[in-house]
Each structure stands twice: as C-alpha cells, then as structure tokens.
Amino acid sequence: MHSRTKVALKREELALLVRDVLGSQRSVRRVDELTEGMFNAAYALELEDGASVVLKVAPPPELPLLTYERDLMRTEVEFYEHAAKEKVCPVPRVLAHDFSRTRIGRDFFFMERLRGTPLTRAKNQLTTGERARIQTELGELVGRLRTIRGRFFGYLQPDTGLQAGTWREAFLAMVAALLQDAERFAVKLPMPARDVLALFQSGAKVLERVEEPTLTHFDLWEGNVFVHRVEGAARIEAFIDGERAFWGDPLAELASTALFRDPEQETDFLRGYQAATGSPLVFTEEVRHRLNLYRAYLYLIMVLEGVPRGYSGLKAMAIRQYCRMKLRGELKLLASR
C-alpha cells in the first residue's frame, strides 16, 4: 500500500548521506527500496566496500500525523539503544543517526542490514517444531524485555505530551489523544468518541496495579520479528520497528505478539515467558481486563493511522474494515465489564 509519509529520496541524495555520515570514502553500489514498512522510507544500500546497511528516513515534519507519531523515528532509535545496552533482546545495530534536520530537513538513521526475514514469510519455511521453538523464544525475549525500567509512564518523546507519573493517567491521556486525532481526521468510529473514552475510563482502575514503567515495544507482530538460521537452527535474529514503544505495562506486549489471536492459547509463547520471568502468566479477570484495554487501544490506532497516511485501494479498505470490526468487539467487551 502507498503511504504519503514515505517520501522518497533520489539516489544522489542517498549517496550524499552515505558519504557525509558514514565516511567520505564510502560510495553506493546498489540501492533497493524496502517496501514492507508503512511509515518511514527505507532503503537497503550495498556499498562499494562490501558493507550492507539500511537507511531509514522519517516523513517531513510538517505532514499531519497522529499525536503519538511525533518524532516517531527517535522512539525507534531509543528503543534499540535501550535494548542493546541492557542486552535483553536482539535488535539491529544503529550505525549513525541525525535528528538535527539540517541535512535533508528530516530525521534519518543508518543501521546494519539483517540477514534474516520477517516471521510472516519465514514461517512458511519452518517445520511445526521450529515454529513452536520460535514462539517459545519470542516469549523468553518478551519476558526479558520487561526488566528495562523507566522514570515515567507514557510515550518516550516529550513533544507528544503523553507522559505521566502513573500508568492510569498516561494511558488515558494516550487514549484521549487518539480520540482527538479521530475527530481531527474525521475518522468514523463504532460509537461516538466520548462514549469510547468513557469505556476506557470506567475500566481504568485495573491499571493502578502497574506501578513500574517498563519498556514495551507494542508492535511485535510477526512482521517485526526477524528470523535467521544459525548453523541450521532457526532463531530470532532481531526485533525491529520499535516506533510504538512506550513506558508502561509489559502485559500490553501480548496485544501485538498475539495480534488478532487469543494470547491464552499461545502455549509455546507462554512457556518461554514463564522461563524468563520465573512464574507463569495467570489470566485472571484483572489481566483479561487489562488486555481488553490494550487490544482496544491497538485496534484504535490501526483504524486511524491509514487516514493521515493516505492508504487507498481495496486492501487498505479491507484492513480498515477488519480492524473496525475488531475494535467494535473489544469495545463491546469493555462495556460488558
């Protein structure tokens, strides 16, 4: 799908950035645009010295975006830096970044190019046992990720204005911002925005159990989990696209690791999660309620984001309708609680 946030660079501009940032003696041999992501422009660059890197370029800052998407690329780099420093999960190595907007008027960064492929494609080449092992490893890594703690709750970038001292306050601010975005972009929701907010607010007491801000990726669907074979064994190579990361409830991770599925049925994932955390994840009514809130929030993002990005065509329409249906179901469940 086309996205208006993916504003392309010319080959000469790419070559200039490589020389300017990675070294004056380095030149580009080959350029391949990476089309799977839907927010940033991305290019796989093969350099004359044999190195292979990825360049990601943010949208122009003047483009209208969702509130939480302000300085989104900076969140991705910060997620990688936290994960690499704490060594809890594999992420691509960031080679250089420039957030000054003095070179091309946009944020950009270079990172190493991964060798593997997204799990969405890799799983077709895996045996049943290998798929189970990957899910167990995913659970282990997600369980380890929850050990990274922050100083506040909410999105990482201060310009979003979506930070607070408690998770309840931060999460409700995040929801309110999305609903304001829905009105700003004239996106039709399953019910009026004020009624949606009331459902989130009525269930927010369960969020008070979350007392420590934990780094949460919140977009670990199979497309953002890279898999690579090492000595014949399929392993998770890296987590990518940490753009939606926030400091919050680690339980929210399950809204994306089990996207459109029931996390209670993900037995291999839960086995790995227990191995990493030392205790099983028990799906109490409170846990189910929190997951209900996080799924509703994620589906709300997915219903909204295609409008400012200008998604069009039958595929985009089908995805939006499906996400609206899933959102309606989660809101109905919240109402029943």
Rank of each mutant, 00 (worst) to 15 (best):
F153V: 01
M191T: 10
P192M: 11
F153W: 00
L162C: 08
R146G: 12
M174I: 08
Q180G: 10
D195H: 12
F171N: 01
Q163I: 06
A170P: 14
M191H: 05
P192A: 13
L197E: 02
W167I: 12
D195N: 11
T147S: 15
L156S: 04
G154E: 03
L178Y: 12
V142S: 12
F152R: 12
L172V: 07
A193K: 14
L145Y: 12
A186E: 13
V142G: 11
L179I: 05
L178A: 06
Y155F: 15
W167H: 06
Q157C: 04
M174N: 08
P158F: 10
P192D: 14
A164Y: 05
R184A: 10
F152M: 04
G161H: 06
W167E: 08
A164P: 06
V187Q: 03
M174D: 04
R146F: 09
A186K: 13
A193E: 15
T147W: 13
Q180M: 09
L172P: 00
D181E: 10
P190I: 03
Y155E: 08
L178Q: 15
L189P: 00
A164K: 04
R144V: 09
G154S: 08
R146L: 13
L178H: 14
E183R: 15
E183A: 15
V187R: 02
L197K: 04
L189S: 01
A177E: 05
F185C: 08
L189I: 03
R146H: 10
D181I: 12
W167N: 08
P190W: 09
G161P: 01
I148N: 12
P190K: 07
F171E: 01
Y155G: 06
P192Y: 11
M174Q: 13
R168N: 02
L189T: 00
L172D: 02
E169C: 05
L178G: 11
Q180L: 12
G143P: 08
V142E: 10
A164F: 04
F171C: 02
D195L: 13
R184I: 02
P158N: 07
R168F: 00
Q157H: 15
V175I: 13
F171I: 06
M174E: 10
V142T: 14
E169G: 07
A186T: 14
Q157S: 11
V196E: 06
M174G: 06
P190Q: 06
R149Q: 15
P158G: 08
G154T: 03
R168Y: 00
P158E: 13
R151L: 12
T166C: 07
K188M: 11
